[in-house]
Design a protein around this nucleic acid. Structure first.
Lengths: 191, 191
DNA sequence: GGATACATGTAAGATGTTACATGATTGT
DNA sequence: ACAATCATGTAACATCTTACATGTATCC
């Protein structure tokens, strides 16, 4: 599967509109969500790779300064959407949970709401399954852990439980906001 | 600051007792907490670097098979303890929160409980400070975010809030367990 | 004696970090 | 003119992934 996470983040930002490398770096540096490098040594080579794959193209130098605006090509958009639609794997859940949230944040306006709901359901299911694994592990090994080890483990458990709850809540919110346009009565929602 | 996270994880495991590279790989592969590579191409080079710095030494081939046991040297132990005692920086909180929990899990039996409490206090303070930043950001920019963007952002907020609560709870547990050895009366504790 | 698990390693390639280099434009 | 900011890049280094290579002990 071609493409690193940073590359898809860049595609995602370019999906919202054309920008220069400098713009992209500033967005990455100032966004409080996820902390991608934003160092020139990471971004410019990444943009170069995207250009090499024809996923982005350079536009005319916009503005007065020496700046090149990048825009998404059809292939780039295609690859970006495929990234968003990738299944939620166990590896994603266990070792790259942040990437899943990143993908989710980029789905707005890019995927139909049915696909987004499917994603959130898979997200909740994947995290729920791993949560059960953790609890099973805890039941078996809690006695062998040190006090702090157990506390840290419980942090992990609480964190995954929170993610499951979050996904369920997110589904409610999405259902709610789509419902309000179609129907106002029936189906009370919590909170 | 010399040393990568995996290297300190290896030191931490060797701090508990001598092990072979294969042992270390299996522990990393089976531990549900944090997902270090455990691939030979990551572990053996890391052990080589540690040996080059004289932080670990190879013992005699223990057991019948061709296996070399590594053990911590005095310098290795020193470096490991310095890693545990590093201050909780904003960068740790924002971009490497997992490393902080990792360090915490390794503190048991390695640092005095006063140092552990100090760490947990700094952990709570650092996460609390960042949490305030996130909430400030939310108050200013929530209107510009998409529905999903806002939801993902709220996941981050809830996650940091949970970490603050966790650290406070952990401090209570530690205080509780040390109290039980010294005093049984007075000071009721929650849960 | 052959399959399987044990045990250690290397090579190629991708990526990220840090630090440095370069030049244009703007403000004063 | 000069400093600060804008804007793009490169080079060296460290590290991790993936895939391959190699050999040993144990079990049947």
């Amino acid at each position: 599967m071609e493409g690193s996470t940073v590359e898809f983040v860049l595609l995602g930002l370019l999906h919202q509109g054309p920008r220069s490398g400098y713009d992209l770096r500033r967005i990455l540096a100032s966004s409080p969500l996820r902390h991608f490098s934003s160092s020139p040594g990471a971004i410019y080579p990444a943009l170069g790779r995207l250009a090499g794959r024809k996923w982005v193209a350079v536009g005319p130098p916009g503005g007065s300064r020496r700046r090149q605006e990048f825009r998404l090509t059809a292939r780039g958009r295609q690859s970006f959407l495929e990234w968003l639609r990738r299944p939620v794997t166990r590896d994603d859940v266990v070792i790259r949970p942040g990437d899943l949230l990143l993908r989710c944040a980029f789905m707005d306006g890019a995927l139909p709401s049915a696909a987004i709901r499917r994603f959130l359901n898979n997200y909740a299911a994947g995290h729920g399954a791993y949560l059960e694994d953790l609890r099973r592990y805890e039941a078996e090994h809690a006695d062998k852990m040190s006090t702090l080890g157990r506390l840290v483990f419980q942090h992990g458990v609480a964190s995954y439980a929170g993610s499951v709850q979050w996904a369920k809540r997110a589904l409610e919110v999405l259902d709610g906001s789509s419902e309000t346009t179609e129907q106002r009565s029936g189906k009370r929602r919590g909170r």
